[in-house]
Design a protein around this nucleic acid. Structure first.
Lengths: 134, 134
DNA sequence: CGGTATACTAACAAAAATGTAGGTACTTCC
DNA sequence: GGAAGTACCTACATTTTTGTTAGTATACCG
């Protein structure tokens, strides 16, 4: 009986993820973490807990809607922790969970590499491709 | 004259990127690398050169259109190299440039972490959030 | 000779992401 | 007292992304 299917393990046979498989849950997680704002939220929260408005000010360009949505998603995935104090002018604090800290380490490595190598990346090729710029 | 603006350096004063700034070019690069298919293409090409149809078969779920678009973008950014042999049934080979190899290392670290920790991520929380699942 | 494969592009359509505006309930600052 | 700040949500509008279908020129397989 060593090859039982254990049927429930992870909703499916994904005891180990495979992002190249379209229906593997790992792909959804990857999308959340690498979404336009998800990455930036992770990077920012890695520097310490932030309040909603505070995040919004640091991450230039996010709308309230997108920030809220992104935070909820990351919270659902277990990467960020939301702590709300029930006071009258609302006070909510967002921070990374232990799992979030691990994940953040990787996205930070990527963003840091990009930031540090921007000159190399922008310089040579990339002749201002007309429509691919955006 | 040590503080000249050198006006062109990087289209702007971005000698070092800052993804938190909305108009910093690093943010666009980040988007390309972390786009839905961009990440998967990088991961796949990191295992060696691939032809178009080959990539399409390995990355489950991409449409031809998206794959072509993604490849062009990554090529413009200087991460992938496209080599076309002008033969009648077209033969094109895609591979990572040295810059691409460096970038790929980071996205691979992230995807590998996710794949390896899927049980931890899916297990506890994430009670199948109704609409955030997708 | 008909079907399949290659590497795409163009045109059109549908779906998903994102932005905007307005509202809430109450407090602090000027 | 009026303005601004807090942390959001809801509805609506727009933008972006993604998918679908068809087409190209030619060669190989049976």
């Amino acid at each position: 009986m060593t090859l039982s299917k254990t049927a429930h393990d992870l909703v499916d046979h994904w005891d180990r993820g495979n992002v190249l498989a379209a229906d593997c849950p790992s792909r959804a997680i990857l999308q959340h973490l690498t979404s336009k704002w998800g990455t930036l939220v992770m990077v920012t929260l890695a520097t310490g807990p932030h309040r909603f408005a505070q995040l919004r000010r640091r991450i230039t360009g996010v709308s309230e809607r997108m920030l809220a949505q992104t935070l909820q998603q990351l919270e659902a995935d277990g990467f960020v922790l939301r702590v709300a104090r029930d006071v009258v002018p609302p006070h909510v604090s967002y921070s990374l969970t232990p799992l979030g800290v691990e994940a953040a380490a990787h996205v930070i490595a990527l963003t840091a590499w990009i930031e540090g190598n921007l000159p190399r990346i922008c310089a040579p090729q990339a002749p201002v491709a007309p429509e691919l710029t955006a």
